[in-house]
Write a protein that binds this DNA or RNA. Sequence first.
DNA 1: TAGGTTCACCTCATATTGAGTAAGACTCGG
DNA 2: CCGAGTCTTACTCAATATGAGGTGAACCTA
Lengths: 249, 249
Amino acid sequence: MDETSFLAGYDPRKYAAVAVTVDVVALTIRDGRLCVLLVERGAQPFAGRRALPGGFVKEEPLNAAALRELAEETGLTPGAGELDRVHLEQLGSYGDPGRDPRMRVVSVAYLAFAPSLPEPTAGSDAARAYWVSVDEAKDLAFDHDTILADGLERARGKLEYTPLATAFTGPEFTIGELRQVYAAVWGEELHAGNFHRKVLSVPGFVESTGETTARGGERGGPKAKLYRAGDARLLHPALLRPTREEPVR
Amino acid sequence: MDETSFLAGYDPRKYAAVAVTVDVVALTIRDGRLCVLLVERGAQPFAGRRALPGGFVKEEPLNAAALRELAEETGLTPGAGELDRVHLEQLGSYGDPGRDPRMRVVSVAYLAFAPSLPEPTAGSDAARAYWVSVDEAKDLAFDHDTILADGLERARGKLEYTPLATAFTGPEFTIGELRQVYAAVWGEELHAGNFHRKVLSVPGFVESTGETTARGGERGGPKAKLYRAGDARLLHPALLRPTREEPVR
DNA sequence: TAGGTTCACCTCATATTGAGTAAGACTCGG
DNA sequence: CCGAGTCTTACTCAATATGAGGTGAACCTA
């Protein structure tokens, strides 16, 4: 059988007993705290419970579906530049039978890093969406607790060996702001002097704009130099998390 | 319409035009070369082309589907212990429209590390499967070239910060054998003295059995001490690849 | 037995890190 | 306007990790 006649007699519906969705772990930093975008579910199952934003994949690539869902829930429009600075990467797929009580659903999870975005405005799909500190994001619907935990662990690791912390800041930032991103994601303070030395010593991590902030910090301190993201895609050597005591056994 | 209302009263057979498969990048080391398990496709599309082993997901978890496909293609039986030492992890999902000419197929790719396994025996499903040096694994069906490349990059990275190199060896191994695993996966020789020092200095990487090999190496040299895998799940500090010259920009 | 190979150590120079100190520049509250 | 407190930036110093190379003895094959 040649390929043409094979395709002609092929019935896709024969195999399709599985639905494919995308779920998005969208992270941002608000007031120095790492936050995740959640939606309130309106219908069964898990009605009233919070969940990660997501939905069915249409005739589009998987990452396009994730970006579309993110745009719909935040009320921001892709293509208008608002989501250009969002970093999006695939996290993994979750497809255990029974993870959705109605049918077999395989969900492709995505991880997004966003600069501080506005609170989703009412009046749209996004009305049910809001940012929640990751510490308070528990008891989510489906297996979204697991997906969120995996996303957080991935994010923490990514900050070690990639310059993606800059995806959480504005286009220009100070070393202190960058340090606060690391502190929020890792959940611990960093030694300011060593961090400063390290960031400037890794080639391609940041580049100076030659400018400084117009004012000092809110609580004092001198004007800080401004930087923008460099062209490195990997940090070498990496910026390792402070002593995780013993390595995971 | 949100996910919930969409799913209510949903008949998957009626609408779903998407199928879910698993594909497996199974790696092993044969004669000092990193090899991947490929199958020869017998049916359209891509009949006669080589492809990664894989197939449709049944009523089972995704990782179980991957292990089942691996077992079917190698002729080994899960549960009989032969596949117990195989490390299996999810690599990622590939779902671009058009990647399969028949219909929308989302494939969840898995990465497997196996000790040197026998050549798949004829007479079974596995008759069409064989190990191929990764250097010669090109022009695969579907987007399997991309999946393989992603798997190789993941494997190379995993060796840096996890003790998974031991998944390529037998239960007991010498430091030299372990070094050859790294050399095969990374594609470059390592400094024997420094490697030896490093492996023994990382807590939990390997533990001594107190035994030595019965004979020296085939080409000379003293009997080597034997080790088994330790209980660490992460290497700290990591065992970094030799200078990748400039970091990836 | 000769020659080459490998293992298990070792040294030494250089990088990198964690911790602490310090000089100024700046803010805010009084 | 003053003083207390904050923050940036830069420095030192010790401990640790890495890259390169060397040594002696065990062991193989020829």
